[in-house]
Design a protein around this nucleic acid. Structure first.
Length: 506
RNA sequence: GGCCCGUUCGUCUAACGGUUAGGACAUCAGAUUUUCAUUCUGGUAAUAGGGGUUCGAUUCCCCUACGGGCUACCA
């Protein structure tokens, strides 16, 4: 009987959660749910110098919005807590010490200045970034280059030190990646990564292995940028817990911007969101707009992210979360990086808005209206309006432009669209049409249209020439649903008022 | 520089040795719509290059080129 699937997403709470992060969450979540497993959120906050207020709460908000809710996390109690690495600090040291004892790691006393000196001393044209590896470790101050007595003395004196992994000199480390197949590395070109920092906190390398073990993680998915350090993690598994216990790895392809790995900068530069939700940097107060605030539906956001690097082998592109759970499989994840295409992202959103029920869009649209100064109290009217205009909305924010004229008079009139062909005959038509409004048998679009056309025929004007002016009068611009349906919703009084108002402007 | 990963239309991708190389976004043209969208029809557009293996390579192998990632007491 195989073990229960357990996967984790382990972000570092240092700022906005971007596309790639959410996609990693998504693939973790889908995989877990598909296999009836657990999805764990673990906060990787081992770098105290990078603490950012509010970042953790922000991550929870993003998960809430996307609907990818963890089974275990700092906010969802589980048996394997704590789920914040800073609160697990005491756990890690013993493993690092164990490695030293077994000869797989060592104490290093080099100060930051000494490390910097080493890098500049060894730096050459051929080797622009020297590593702390088997070729230099003997020249540094550590328990490998010093005698046991010297080491003990330094330790006893309370000298600051780190624990580094001792990479073997000539081994090939390989493992099978679920997406890439077998990947192998020569250990002689991997450096002696720090495992335990001078402040007693583990680095990512130690923490990820220890926590994945302790939390019984069965499958570990992360971005491709982690691939180069995978041999360190594999070795740590081998030394500490045995390779049989190691989770199966999958390194997800990167999501690229126009120039390499997608970054916050790309968003600002090319005008599309990168973060799931808006993020305000507490230090600079700089606001970075998110997909949510830009007007994306969470369903669409998840859908487009899922398809960025995965497909189910058919030509289907629109998937609900349930369908994704059912159909997702890691072996259909593409191995190459994917360039993010904002145009296609918008298409997904448009599709989702079109297929959404007007009722389900109501609360979002209502709050959008209210932030734009329009308070809607008629629920039925709102739903009717949404149903009428949603095909024209690519982003949720488009509802403001497409729908607000139903609730308030247009702020501006595109009179230039009328003026060139305006004449006294048309003015006369509208004046008499305004007066005839109350003779229309029932205030329904068909009757209104009928009366409109009859009057046009009597006055010998082509109705086509009158429809655009009518639209401008009611809507303010050249957009919106069929004009007589608008009039129906507006009501006779308002329709007449808007016609008169515009007439006075012409 | 070194190491690792990758490479099918502009973009996301399908084709797990045999297809007229398929779909979607974008784009262009047309139809519908007396606004704008929606909808519909059609078009342009790709296997990076060179060697192998094979009766046959988009598909397998090698080399080159290109792209990307990593190269911190950051994750």
């Amino acid at each position: 009987m195989s073990k229960k699937v357990r996967v984790r997403f382990a972000p570092s709470p240092t700022g906005g959660l971007h596309l790639g992060g959410v996609r990693t969450v998504l693939y973790n979540y889908l995989f877990a749910k598909k296999h009836g497993g657990d999805f764990i959120l673990r906060i990787e906050d081992t770098d105290q110098t990078r603490y950012v207020a509010g970042a953790e709460e922000y991550i929870f908000n993003c998960l809430q919005w996307t609907g990818l809710i963890p089974d275990e996390s700092p906010a969802h109690a589980g048996k394997y807590g704590p789920y914040r690495q800073s609160e697990r600090k005491p756990i890690y040291r013993q493993y690092a010490e164990q490695l030293v004892k077994d000869g797989h790691a060592y104490y290093a006393f080099d100060t930051p200045e000494e490390l910097e000196k080493m890098r500049s001393d060894f730096k050459t044209e051929h080797n622009p970034s020297p590593q702390y590896d088997h070729t230099v470790r003997k020249k540094m101050r550590n328990s490998l280059s010093l005698t046991d007595a010297e080491t003990k003395q330094l330790l006893d004196a309370g000298t600051r030190y780190v624990i580094r992994i001792k990479m073997p000199e000539n081994e090939t480390v390989s493992f099978t990646d679920m997406i890439r197949g077998e990947v192998s590395f020569d250990t002689s070109v991997v450096d002696d990564k720090v495992l335990l920092k001078a402040d007693g906190m583990p680095t990512y390398h130690l923490a990820v292995v220890v926590d994945d073990y302790l939390m019984k993680i069965t499958h570990a998915f992360r971005g491709e940028e982690w691939l180069p350090s995978a041999p360190v993690h594999v070795l740590l598994w081998k030394y500490l817990f045995g390779l049989n216990e190691m989770p199966q790895w999958a390194h997800l392809p990167l999501i690229l911007g126009p120039n390499g790995k997608l970054s916050k900068r790309d968003g600002a530069k090319y005008g599309f969101p990168v973060f799931a939700m808006s993020w305000i940097d507490p230090k600079t107060n700089e606001l970075t707009e998110g997909f949510k605030e830009k007007g994306f539906l969470p369903e669409a956001f998840i859908n487009l992210l899922a398809l960025l690097g995965w497909n189910d082998g058919t030509e289907q592109e629109i998937f609900t979360k349930e369908e994704l759970i059912e159909k997702f499989s890691m072996d259909r994840v593409h191995s190459g990086g994917a360039k993010f295409d904002y145009e296609k992202a918008k298409w997904f959103n448009h599709e989702w808005i079109k297929k959404s029920e007007a009722g389900s869009l109501k609360s979002e649209v209502r709050s959008l209206f209210s932030t734009n100064g329009i308070n809607v109290d008629d629920d039925n009217l709102l739903e009717k309006v949404i149903g009428l205009v949603k095909d024209r909305c690519t982003l949720l924010t488009d509802f403001v432009q497409q729908g607000s004229f139903f609730f308030q008079q247009p702020q501006q009139y595109d009179l230039d669209a009328i003026k060139p062909k305006w004449n006294d005959a048309k003015r006369k038509f509208f004046e008499s049409f305004t007066e005839e409004l109350n003779t229309i048998p029932e205030w329904k679009s068909a009757f209104i249209e009928d009366a409109f056309k009859k009057l046009a025929a009597i006055q010998n004007i082509k109705p086509g020439e009158l429809q655009l002016p009518l639209r401008i009068m009611l809507v303010g611009g050249k957009f919106g649903p069929p004009v007589f349906e608008i009039a129906e919703i507006l009501g006779a009084g308002e329709t007449s008022a808007r016609m008169n108002k515009t007439l006075s402007l012409l």
